[in-house]
Amino acid sequence: MSVELFDHTGDIGVRLTAASREELFGIAALALTDILTAADSVEVRETADLRVSAAGMDLLLLEFLSELLFRFDARGWLTRRADVTIDERGDALSLTAQVHGEPLDPERHGIKVLVKAVTYHGLEVRKGDDSWQATVVFDV
């Protein structure tokens, strides 16, 4: 499992590697949190459910991260851990997740940068021989 940040002009990209696609989505959620604030400052105090669907694995990751970003920007929700289940029916993919974390507390969570959106640029989810990899670029 690895998370690697890379520079993309004015924005931030991440390259992720994980043993399974569920784990891949889980670390993607954590990577987003860590771009917004120090992920280890976020505690598990509450749990929420979410569900998204898409027509491809790359788009599913985009929908999932966009949902988490929406919950942060609109409601101050920060995710510390995401338990992800992915269901595949032909081309239709659906994801359900339990996300564990807490609401933003400005006293404890210093914000590093605001993320505007999860972008389509360079968006990729790949299955390797014994791992899953993804690339995502965030507009900040």
Binding site: A74, I111, V113, L114, K116, V140
Partner: peptide, 14 residues
Amino acid sequence: LERGAGQLGTLGSG
């Protein structure tokens, strides 16, 4: 709308 409701009169970052 939900994102915007609390953000009128705020500068933003970047």
